[in-house]
């Protein structure tokens, strides 16, 4: 592997590891606060799957970088600007509607993304994609069912879902942003072209919205920046909590 490719692959593995890490951490905030017991368990189960996926991708990132950094070093000792998670994943939980809509957007993206990454020439990425795909299928099904139920439910639940949509739609463009890192790895057959996934994603969202009786907003300015480490104000606050222990007591273990 040339230096250029391995640098790009490291960068890409951070993206793959950071998004589930940050979303898993967000979902973990629901622990003990779910609207019903089953949902508390569901949200934390999803969080657990995501943290597990993140661990494998970050471990691989550390191997590619070959500077001895572990999954923990990468998760707990990087600063905000070094994180490559999707902007959607760091958005606050808000109410249950906002959490579920965010989950639908991310899970639908992951579903089509991992389906494509399964075909990667990189054996590790292909295996991890196949494993993750099975798990995000449950997440997608679960979040889509809730979005339908909330949109098609009471005037209160519909209003909350529409508020969530106003809040979150502007971050969906960021899902499909690509840069030189993508170009290098697409050429090698290591990662998929995200442009080719956009239509499937939009179809799934449209189908779900149709059943939920809500509409996709039009003419919304799309936020971007996650590929360059430019985040919304929320990530820094989140990391200060997530990383507190390792920052205050470096190297602390259980």
């Amino acid at each position: 592997m040339t230096d250029k490719i391995s640098k790009a692959l490291f960068e890409y593995c951070l993206r793959l590891g950071d998004s589930p890490l940050i979303l898993g951490q967000r979902l973990g905030e629901w622990c003990g606060h779910g609207p019903i017991l089953e949902e508390d368990i569901a949200l934390t189960n999803i969080a657990l799957d995501l943290i597990g996926q993140s661990r494998a991708f970050l471990t691989y990132a550390g191997e590619i970088e070959a500077k001895g950094r572990t999954e923990d070093d990468l998760a707990f000792l990087r600063n905000e600007r070094e994180f490559r998670n999707l902007l959607l994943t760091e958005q606050p939980n808000g109410d249950f509607a906002q959490t579920m809509l965010r989950q639908l957007f991310v899970s639908a993206f992951q579903y089509y993304f991992y389906s494509a990454l399964k075909l990667s020439k990189d054996k590790t990425l292909s295996a991890l994609a196949e494993k993750s795909l099975k798990e995000v299928s449950y997440h997608l099904r679960h979040s889509a069912q809730w979005v339908i139920r909330l949109g098609d439910g009471t005037s209160e639940s519909k209003a909350r879902l529409e508020n969530a949509l106003d809040e979150l739609w502007k971050y969906t463009g960021d899902l499909f942003d690509m840069d030189d890192t993508d170009t290098i790895l697409i050429k090698e057959g290591i990662v998929p072209d995200l442009n080719l996934l956009r239509e499937d994603w939009l179809d799934k969202i449209s189908e779900t919205f149709g059943l939920a009786s809500i509409s996709i907003p039009e003419n919304v300015f799309m936020m971007s920046g996650s590929r360059k480490g430019k985040h919304t104000e929320h990530l820094g606050h989140m990391l200060s909590e997530m990383q507190y222990l390792q920052r205050a007591f470096p190297g602390a273990t259980w």
Binding site: E38, E39, I41, A42, N45, I46, L48, D49, Y138, R141, H142
Partner: peptide, 13 residues
């Protein structure tokens, strides 16, 4: 089916 997510990741309730 009560929930796709049960007492462990591998089980539904």
């Amino acid at each position: 089916l009560v929930s796709q997510f049960g007492s462990t990741a591998c089980k539904a309730l």
